[in-house]
Simulated scan of single mutants.
Amino acid sequence: MPGLEAGFAAHIAAGVTTLCHCWQVTRRDGAVFAFTDHDMPLRFGGVTFRADTGLSARALAQTSGLSVDNTEALGALCDDGIREDEIEQGRFDGADVQAWLVNWAEPSQRMLQFGGSIGELHRAGGSFRAELRGLTEPLNRPQGRVYQKPCSAVLGDGNCRFDLSEPGYAEERAVETVQDAQSFRWAGFSGFEENWFVRGRFDVIDGPAAGLWGMIKLDYFEDAQRVIELWEPIRGALPEGTRVRLTAGCDKRMETCRLKFNNLVNFQGFPDLPGEDWMMAVPRSDGANTGGSLR
């Protein structure tokens, strides 16, 4: 078999094999989970692959072109392995996945069968099903800039270049009153004008939901309290005293970039792009056709 280590190839060619599958999942926060469908734990590459997770895999589809390699991993939820609340919080979304075919009698003999990331992940009845996407999947995404009037950059990223650590653009506070993990209220929260945080980020700094974040939908005052509402609930517990960070929002308009952030030099939109009415322009029989309004 071309591409296989000689000892592993000889083992497979022998006909009677001692093979199993091993999976390693590395989340974006650095947490590593490793499983095997063998009946005993295995260790290689400095990682121990647990045998008591009930993890299995469906057939792997791979191609030589740019179409997406894909498969599914099936497994049982357990308290000290993949937990239901962590799936609900989205902590496994986009995690890196590697899958090996391993000689369990000699783990140094192995072959990497799959490398990619977790796509959609579902849970039901004490189990989970994870769609795995191959390394070619990002090649199917649109690349390059889009010509549009609003700014295409994300506030604070490499294209925007705005420094969000500047005073007045972020606020850290302890949770006081929260409803449904989506609506938050503070007394004495002044120093920022109303709607300052609309379209901004709401990041959880500590507590059970640390690392989770949401987008801010509304920012207003009501009954001497400041109210911050998110588009979707934070998928984790937020007890009183949990530290959160609110970051100012940007509506992508050139005026906002200039007046709110003083960052017009890095504006990534095309505000003078003609609108759809420009396509309806017709010749005029009188006067000058300057390209202005037809009315």
Results as ranks from 00 to 15, higher is better:
Asp52Thr: 09
Glu194Phe: 08
Gly119Val: 03
Ala51Val: 00
Phe33Leu: 12
Pro142Val: 00
Gln98Ile: 11
Asp39Thr: 08
Gly119Glu: 08
Asp93Glu: 11
Glu72Gly: 02
Leu19Pro: 01
Cys250Trp: 10
Pro208Asn: 08
Ala281Glu: 13
Ser56Trp: 04
Gly94Gln: 10
Ala187Trp: 01
Glu229Asp: 06
Thr17Trp: 01
Ala105Cys: 00
Trp231Ala: 05
Ala31Met: 10
Met215Leu: 15
Met254Lys: 08
Gly90Leu: 12
Ile234Ala: 03
Asp69Leu: 04
Ala76Tyr: 03
Asp85Asn: 07
Gln148Asp: 12
Leu77Cys: 06
Ala73Met: 13
Gln24Arg: 15
Glu5Asp: 12
Trp196Asn: 01
Met215Pro: 07
Phe8Glu: 01
Pro271Phe: 04
Leu135Phe: 05
Thr18Trp: 03
Glu72Ile: 14
Arg199Pro: 00
Ala14Val: 02
Gln268Val: 07
Leu101Tyr: 01
Arg161His: 05
Asn70Met: 04
Ala73Gly: 09
Ala14Asp: 09
Glu106Met: 03
Arg243Gln: 15
Val178Pro: 05
Asp251Phe: 03
Glu176His: 09
Leu4Ala: 07
Ala181Asn: 15
Gly236Pro: 08
Ala237Lys: 07
Arg235Asn: 13
Gln109Trp: 05
Leu264Ser: 13
Trp100Leu: 02
Ala34Glu: 02
Ile234Trp: 12
Asp80Thr: 14
Arg28Gly: 11
Pro150Phe: 05
Ala99Leu: 14
Asp223Ser: 13
Glu86Trp: 12
Ala57Arg: 15
Gly81Trp: 11
Thr71His: 00
Glu166Gly: 00
Phe49Gln: 06
Phe44His: 06
Ala95Asn: 07
Gly125Glu: 05
Asp39Ser: 14
Gly75Asp: 03
Phe44Ser: 03
Phe128His: 03
Asp206Gly: 09
Asp223Ala: 13
Glu5Gln: 14
Gly168Asn: 05
Ala170Met: 11
Arg226Ser: 07
Cys22Gln: 06
Thr36Asn: 05
Leu19Gln: 14
Lys252His: 15
Lys217Asp: 09
Leu230His: 07
Gly119Thr: 06
Cys151Trp: 07
Ile234Met: 04
Ala10Asp: 14
Glu88Phe: 12
Asp93Arg: 13
Cys160Leu: 01
Pro2Gln: 02
Leu238Glu: 09
Phe189Tyr: 15
Leu77Ser: 01
Lys217Thr: 00
Gly81Ile: 13
Ala124Cys: 00
Ile12Gln: 11
